[in-house]
Design a protein around this nucleic acid. Structure first.
Length: 566
RNA sequence: CGGGGUGUAGCGCAGCCUGGUAGCGCGCUUGCUUUGGGAGCAAGAUGUCGCGUGUUCAAAUCACGCCACCCCGACCA
């Protein structure tokens, strides 16, 4: 491709509404254009990247034995009513009506449609297993779309669904997909990590997320450097402290802490570590009031709380409810002397001589001890998010925390949809049974954002070679002035193209600085500079996007040399 | 959905408080010079000042309503 005939639209300044680096760079590089909130057009340059990602995914899915099909973006309401999700999904589901006032939705996912297809197509165990997938536009009416294509409302997704006669075969395919996803992200050139995940609203049992590692990622993932353990912080278990509770050494003292309501403030005021304080979080389950206790420097994991049977579902108590049950407004509440249900985090249950609210405005209690100043906690659960340094649940060391961007998710759905939508088959003994089902998603457009988030510098994007918009950029210095430069650049362009490379020849009549800056901004991984200076000595210059300096390579070898670079 | 903020040229912004003929930088067009890291000079083009209603002799500027976008939170995954 000659740049003079391509459409490059780079900007020196990013629009002010872009907050994260990948979004700014995608706009500056002209990969996408915003059309409405969370809705983008992919420009020719960006589409090249998107298609390369898509093709790698397609190749690996096909290799893994999955079959590509294409389902409609617009889906009839009846299917969603049948699965029960027409009610459950909420406002994220974009509902629309046709001219006959029939209800439809723009599909946020395709479990209903695929299950409908499969229940009509498959009747015998002899037709199982089957794995269908598509790469298709989805729409989810996010409350707050942001981060450009990373959390858009309309996005491109690879979604696959597998159907099996029994759980063992589902597990086999699940492992197959785990391996396939690992191959895909490796081929894409991304640093990633697979982690055990919460199954969330979709339900089912086994689930793993694939995260592209990036400091700016929205998700926190806990992993153990000494073992294979890795889990989303939402799920990672905070094991009980190894040491037994120390004995009480201090008397309980009512201490004035005027205006200090947060644990950090109280700790600072008292000159102690925040880890000596205990925070109380009031929640309601129906009309029952409960007090959750966490160490001051720990944070509540709402997913873990929601899994405690006698608390599920729960909501946070209002200020009025807190006052009614504890006689005190939030900020100074605590478990001592309160006739309420107390649920302690495992760590809190091992604390002694701690600090907590006195249920009296402006006062905290210090030197509080279980069994002496208040009853032993009636319930002890894992309530908190793990932090770096916590012991790994598998006992193989301590946890570290990394941040990641979720780009893939695999689930064992089991028979949930098969049962609600009656997708059954006849087994070998002629019995009718629901199919076991798995589902496997990859956020294709999100990968482009995540790849940039992970790979960029002050000059712009550094696409991994496999997904760069062009395999190589030829930057001629003086293309419009020097016959020698022009003929050599043209010759090299033809030569590389005939070798199958996707080449951008920047033949625009611009100053060299502009050409260099654009090639770097749009993230092309390899660059060849042709200039009179080098031609006199029979060389061109090769520079990888991450290389600090250029290498001089003989003209006769530059094509081969370049294509052999990673 | 609650709180806060912003809407002025393709992009980034000033002007608004204190009403009086719309400005800067980048980009764009033309010419000359320049040509190995986002050039210089000169001349130009481009605006329903988000939309509507009101106040006023006069509204980008003041008031009210609406819309859009951004941030924080809630919600959701």
């Amino acid at each position: 491709m000659r740049a003079s005939r391509f459409h490059l639209s780079t900007l020196k300044e990013a629009p002010s509404d872009a907050e994260i680096i990948s979004h700014k760079l995608m706009i500056r590089a002209g990969l996408v254009k915003r059309v409405a909130g969370g809705i983008y057009s992919w420009m020719p340059l960006g589409l090249r990247v998107l298609r390369k990602v898509e093709n790698i995914i397609r190749e690996e899915m096909n290799r893994a034995g999955a079959l590509e099909l294409s389902m409609p973006a617009v889906q009839p309401a009846e299917l969603w009513q049948e699965s029960g999700r027409w009610q459950k999904y909420g406002p994220e589901l974009l509902r629309i009506r046709d001219r006959h006032q029939r209800e439809f939705c723009f599909g946020p996912t395709h479990e209903e449609v695929i299950t409908d297809i499969v229940r009509r197509e498959i009747r015998s165990y002899r037709q199982l297993p089957r794995h269908f997938y598509q790469i298709q536009t989805k729409f989810r009416d996010e409350i707050r779309p942001r981060f450009g294509v990373m959390r858009g409302r309309e996005f491109l997704m690879k979604d696959g669904y597998s159907f099996h006669a029994d759980f063992e075969d589902l597990q086999r395919e699940y492992r197959n997909m785990y391996d396939t996803y690992s191959r895909i992200f490796t081929r894409l050139g991304l640093r990633f990590r697979a982690v055990a995940a919460d199954t969330g609203a979709i339900g089912g049992t086994g689930s793993h997320e694939f995260h592209v590692l990036a400091d700016s990622g929205e998700d926190a993932i806990a992993f153990c450097p000494g073992s294979e353990y890795a889990a989303n912080v939402e799920l990672a278990e905070a094991v009980a402290p190894a040491l037994a509770r120390a004995g009480a050494r201090e008397p309980m003292v009512r201490t004035a802490t005027p205006g200090k309501t947060r644990c950090e403030e109280v700790a600072e005021f008292l000159g102690i570590a925040t880890s000596r304080t205990v925070k109380a979080i009031a929640i309601m389950h129906d009309e029952d009031f409960h007090l959750l206790l966490l160490r001051g420097d720990h944070t509540l994991n709402e997913i873990k709380v929601a899994k405690i049977p006698f608390l599920s579902p729960f909501r946070f108590a209002t200020d009025e409810e807190i006052e009614r049950h504890l006689g005190c407004r939030p900020g100074y509440i605590g478990p001592v002397g309160a006739a309420v249900s107390v649920i302690a985090d495992r760590t809190v249950s091992r604390m002694s001589d701690f600090v907590c609210g006195a249920n009296e405005p402006g006062y905290h209690l210090t030197g509080v001890n279980w069994g002496r100043d208040l009853a032993e906690p009636a319930h002890v659960f894992d309530l908190r998010n793990v932090v770096a340094g916590d012991p790994s649940p598998d006992g193989a060391g301590t946890l570290e925390i990394l941040r990641g961007i979720e780009v893939g998710h695999i689930f064992q759905l089991r028979t949930r949809y098969a049962e609600s939508m009656k997708a059954t088959f006849l087994d070998e003994s002629g019995r009718e049974r629901p199919m076991e089902m798995g589902c496997y998603g990859i956020g294709v457009s999100r990968i482009v954002g995540a790849a940039i988030e992970q790979n960029c510098d002050e000059r712009g994007i550094i696409f991994p070679q496999p997904i760069a918009p062009f395999d190589v950029a030829i930057v001629p210095v003086g293309y419009h002035k020097s016959v020698a430069v022009r003929s050599e650049a043209d010759r090299l362009y033809e030569s590389l193209s005939s070798m199958g490379a996707d080449v951008l020849l920047d033949d625009r009549d611009e100053r060299p600085g502009v050409l260099f800056a654009d090639a770097e901004l749009i993230g092309i991984a390899r660059r060849i500079v042709i200039g009179e200076r080098g031609l006199r000595e029979g060389v061109a210059e090769y520079q990888g996007r991450r290389d600090p300096t250029a290498q001089r390579v003989a003209l006769g070898e530059i094509a081969q040399f370049t294509l052999s670079r990673q």
